[in-house]
């Protein structure tokens, strides 16, 4: 994955994990939710992130095609529910991406103003 930033050459090592597939805002949020929750139902992800089913489905498909997310189908109240979770590869990619973002922000970043 190609990566670089205008934050300076000193952070190049930290940027190795930058992942353009994950960095898209909705996919980044999906990954953050799945990383924190372990596994989450499609409808819950949709509700938590305020997305339509079609938009979420589109982004989940991208993450699944990249091998970052897998789904499990389960029946509840006679209706089929889809549960999503990060794969080991997806978890590594997400955490690597967070490390890259932190490298860009920099270690001496002052606290954000209120």
């Amino acid at each position: 994955m190609s990566a670089g930033a205008d934050a300076g050459a000193g952070v190049d090592d930290g940027l190795a994990g930058f992942d353009t597939t994950i960095h898209a805002p909705i996919r980044l949020r999906v990954c953050a939710l799945l990383d924190a929750a372990g596994e989450a139902e499609f409808g819950l992800v949709q509700k938590q992130l305020g997305l339509s089913a079609s938009v979420l489905s589109k982004h989940v498909t991208v993450l699944m095609d990249a091998g970052y997310v897998e789904q499990r189908k389960a029946v509840r109240d006679t209706r089929q529910r889809v549960w999503l979770r990060l794969t080991a590869r997806g978890r590594d990619a997400y955490r690597g991406h967070l490390a890259a973002l932190r490298a860009i922000v920099g270690p001496s970043d002052p606290p954000a103003a209120p």
């Binding site: 670089g4 353009t20 980044l28 973002l101 860009i104």
Partner: peptide, 21 residues
């Protein structure tokens, strides 16, 4: 050839993930 991302944009993305987490 590469990616241009400002500190502010990276900070905003991190804040976003923290909120979801």
């Amino acid at each position: 050839h590469g990616i241009r991302l400002t500190q502010e944009q990276a900070r905003s993305a991190l804040a976003d993930t923290e909120q979801v987490r």
